[in-house]
């Protein structure tokens, strides 16, 4: 029975969630690009401060300065968390091996010890992030359910992956651990384009879009006035 589920998780479910993740993100980007193009076309003032946008974007993509400015502990933990989160799944030797076997794709892997170190830091920083969210009243109050869920959900594949590469310490059998690992990974892939994790692809455009947001269409105010039937009415 376990083998059946394993096959299912590795095959159809993986392909479904991976395709949904990639295509879903592509869809979001294309919709955003379309919206941005439309907004730019409509904007009354088409001059944008591109250099400022570019600088701010780079600044947030590689937030080296950011840790010093405010909430330094939270920032550093979150940077560590992101590093592990991005590097380990993509550059783990075993994952690359799967891609090589399946699609003939191959790219350099990180050393095993680094991968293990990053896995542990990611798990720890996820726990810290969760605690920080619960601890700080500001973030606790503005958080929705998914904000609490995400760090915990992300721990699962990392922890189970760690146990898969160290079966001797695993509380469950190898296959069961692998099943948990694959299913949780699939679930995360599935959720990426549907939740806030889509920021992984949208963040680079955010500054540009925010700036574009201030560039209203020429006749927007007048059109809204007409639509709401307030044309010519006293204020």
């Amino acid at each position: 029975m376990l083998e059946f589920w394993l096959e299912l998780a590795k095959g159809p479910i993986f392909r479904f969630s991976f395709a949904l993740c990639v295509l879903g993100l592509a869809r979001i980007v294309m919709l955003s690009a379309w919206g941005a193009a439309k907004a730019y076309y409509a904007a009354g003032d088409k001059e944008l401060p591109y250099s400022l946008i570019w600088r701010t974007t780079i600044h947030w993509l590689f937030p080296i300065r950011m840790g010093l400015r405010n909430r330094p502990f939270f920032s550093i933990v979150s940077i560590l968390f992101h590093i592990g989160l991005i590097i380990v799944p993509i550059f783990l030797f075993a994952h690359i091996q799967l891609w090589y076997q399946g699609a003939g794709l191959w790219w350099p892997a990180i050393p095993r010890h680094l991968a293990e170190f990053l896995t542990v830091t990611t798990i720890l920083s996820a726990i810290l992030l969760f605690l920080a969210r619960v601890w700080s009243s500001a973030s606790r109050h503005i958080s929705r359910g998914q904000e609490f869920m995400w760090p915990l959900l992300l721990i699962i594949p990392f922890l189970s992956g760690f146990f898969c590469s160290h079966p001797a310490w695993s509380p469950l059998s190898y296959n069961a651990m692998l099943l948990i690992h694959i299913l949780s990974g699939n679930f995360i892939l599935l959720l990426i384009p549907l939740t806030k994790i889509s920021h992984c692809i949208l963040t680079p455009f955010s500054q540009f879009i925010s700036e574009l947001g201030w560039h209203f269409p020429k006749n927007s105010a007048k059109d809204v006035e007409i639509t709401l039937g307030k044309q010519g009415q006293p204020i």
Binding site: L31, G35, A36, A39, P217, S220
Partner: peptide, 9 residues
């Protein structure tokens, strides 16, 4: 009639 939809999305 405006571009606010873009930023909200």
């Amino acid at each position: 009639h405006s571009s606010y939809g873009l930023i909200l999305e």
